[in-house]
Design a binder for these strands. Sequence first.
RNA 1: GCUGGGAUAGCGAAGUGGUCAAACGCAUUAGACUGUAAAUCUAACACCGCAAGGUUUCGUAGGUUCGAUCCCUACUCCCAGCA
Length: 377
Amino acid sequence: MFELLKTENSARRGRLTTVHGTVETPFFMNVATAAAIKGGISALDLEELKCPVMLCNTYHLHIRPSDAVIREMGGLRMFTRWEKPLLTDSGGFQVFSLAKLRRIKEEGVYFSSHVDGKKIFMGPEESMQIQSNLASTIAMAFDECVENPAPYEYVKKSAEMTTRWLVRCKNELERLNALDCTLNKNQLLFGINQGGTFKDLRIEHMREITELDLPGYAIGGLAVGETTDVMYEVLDYIVDEMPFEKPRYLMGVGTPSNLIEAVARGIDMFDCVMPSRNARHGTVFTWQGIMRLMNERYITDDSPLDPECDCPVCRNFSRAYLRHLFKAGEHLAARLGVLHNLYFYNTLMERIQEALDNGEFAQFRAKYSPLLAQKRN
RNA sequence: GCUGGGAUAGCGAAGUGGUCAAACGCAUUAGACUGUAAAUCUAACACCGCAAGGUUUCGUAGGUUCGAUCCCUACUCCCAGCA
């Protein structure tokens, strides 16, 4: 159940209640693709990082260790010891990212496993069955994520197929949720809007999928090649087409500045690989902008990554030490970097919520949206 | 002392008469990363120059040659084996 608490222009402050707990919106989901946040972070760490929702991937877990195994272990939340809400992505993004290893047909997608090359088929029904076995709180629809830019005709056909796939997802999940043996009978299905950067296709597709009256809707196919300005343009017109009283999820986005801008346009949920991936590669986010830790300038810098941050890393370690760990290739570097970045993202969302609570989001946005996009000095 | 082998950019290591400022690794410096095939990828890295381009290099000093990192001589240093 989604409850809107307050709005400020298009921005919304809300609360999402699920069988696995209540989450304050807007929020950011921490990405644990293969049931672990890369960089050596466990569900236990996520607690300290103030993570509201963990996200895992259908495709990866189906391949290894298999959804059958995870089901036998009591579902993903039991398996990982993550007690709060969990969202599973459908494998739709892999239709995009594994471009060289798949073939798309009406019935679904034929992949060559990136692990051992084995042929696997995944369609809407399979994705739902797997996600049902994973027993996540929220299951995402199986869609085709198309790269930008793409030809109009292709995007149109793709979006139409994604609609047909969504109907099949809905039917299959209803069937599964009605079974006695289902681990989470309340599993929610979110639909995903596509249509590339074409306004008419986006809007038409959104209208079609909202007719299915799902518990939530996502915007997919953004931040996949188009410029940030184009992404914001799409948000500007598509959010108006989304049900007002349901959660709105912008998939795969983004930078701290992107999050603020998307919240301003009415988005409630996010996920992105950026904080964890960039951290592993030595780039951290701070309240003064982004920081490339491996830069020579930090070699004897005794201050914390971010003097404004009270994460476990900033409370204890110096930039000089972290830089050394990165240069030395120590695994600890990745772990500490990811801890900080996720804490930063989760704190950013908390501060956005606070600003909305206090009716000060406009000021917050004006100050931090440009600042967080800069390189710190 | 003798006999072999070797000295190439910060380090390691290719090249063995012209297409060599010199492959490749590492280190270094900078950049990228947006529903994770990513602890990954890209670029620069003798000197001068924004660049085009120019200048000086392959232990040292000579020599052969139109031309040498590559062939010859001497020297210096290193390594292995033998005394």
